[in-house]
């Protein structure tokens, strides 16, 4: 038994070593980002591995020098878009997946397959056409258009939530129907309350989309800096004419975006896992 214990200790030691090395490798880029966000000298490229001097002015200037790169405003824009997208997309996804999972109707299979196929198209292939449609209906350079498009895209990834609803026993619905509940009532009062993990998962993923998308948002917002979301604005800081002046501020801005996202992730990771695996685990 003693030798078993020793091998156990030995193998644990090896695992600890590997985990430590991996953690370092994984954290180096993050650490580098944080260090450079405090870098005192300007410029994206420095001759040394680490910055020579440190300052907090990169952070301060994000909030004080706002005539062109209006970080606080972009933060507000993104938050607003994210909140609305989160609410609308979550509702859409839940509605669609519930319909496909629970309601039986003509051409249900066809609808599902069409949705699946459409989801396979890389979204930005159609960006230009989407832009012109939004312009034609008068939503040019508006946050509403971002919310609409993010929500639509999210709604096509219904199958994860559908997988979750599939796992809820149908007997519950049947019992409620006998009690005289309509399908609408079943959905709102019975199914939704016990679907917390998938609601949180969907809300989380759709809330995060506006924070990380820089391509579509820049196609919609184009030259209107005041309406930018954070990702687009930060990306603009890296353009050739700006990168020397703004690179360190880009890093500072990126750190500030990452903090709330990290907290959300750490807080909700359990639901995230349950979501991705379609409810097959109750972690």
């Amino acid at each position: 038994m003693a030798s078993y214990k020793r091998t156990q200790q030995l193998s644990n030691g090896v695992v600890y070593a590997i985990l430590s090395i991996m953690s370092v490798v994984w954290l180096i880029p993050i650490a580098w980002l944080i260090l450079r966000s405090f870098q005192a000298e300007k410029g994206a490229w420095i001759t040394t591995v680490l910055p020579q001097g440190y300052t907090v002015s990169n952070y301060v200037r994000l909030f004080t020098e706002t005539t062109q790169f209006n970080y606080p405003r972009w933060f507000g824009n993104t938050l607003m878009v994210a909140v609305f997208t989160c609410v609308i997309a979550t509702l859409l996804v839940l509605m669609i997946s519930y319909t496909f999972s629970r309601l039986r109707f003509k051409s249900r299979k066809a609808f599902m397959n069409v949705g699946l196929i459409l989801n396979m198209f890389p979204g930005f292939m159609t960006m230009i056409a989407v832009y012109h449609i939004l312009k034609a209906i008068g939503l040019y350079q508006s946050h509403i258009s971002l919310i609409l498009v993010y929500s639509t895209t999210a709604s096509l990834s219904y199958f994860i939530a559908k997988g979750f609803f599939d796992t809820i026993p149908k007997a519950m619905d049947e019992a409620a129907t006998i009690d005289g509940a309509t399908r609408s009532q079943i959905f709102w009062r019975i199914t939704l309350p016990i679907s917390k993990p998938i609601v949180i998962y969907t809300a989380l993923t759709s809330f995060l989309a506006p924070w990380v998308d820089f391509i579509f948002a820049s196609v919609i917002m184009k030259d209107n800096y005041d309406k930018y979301t954070l990702a687009v604005g930060l990306y603009r800081m890296l353009e050739r004419e700006n990168i020397y002046e703004y690179f360190t501020r880009f890093c500072a801005g990126a750190v500030l975006v990452s903090i709330p996202i990290t907290l959300l992730f750490i807080f909700f990771q359990r639901y995230y896992v349950e979501g991705v695996t379609g409810g097959s685990t109750k972690g």
Binding site: L92, M95, I96, Y98, F105, G115, F121, T126, R183
Partner: peptide, 29 residues
């Protein structure tokens, strides 16, 4: 629309949006 045809209620909105922002652009493309 809240009962036997509840699927129609739930799917109409998404369908319209998917048509506007996915299917029409796709056909164009």
């Amino acid at each position: 629309l809240l009962d036997e045809r509840y699927h129609a209620t739930l799917l109409t909105g998404p369908t319209v949006m998917v048509f506007a922002f996915v299917i029409i652009p796709l056909l164009f493309m």
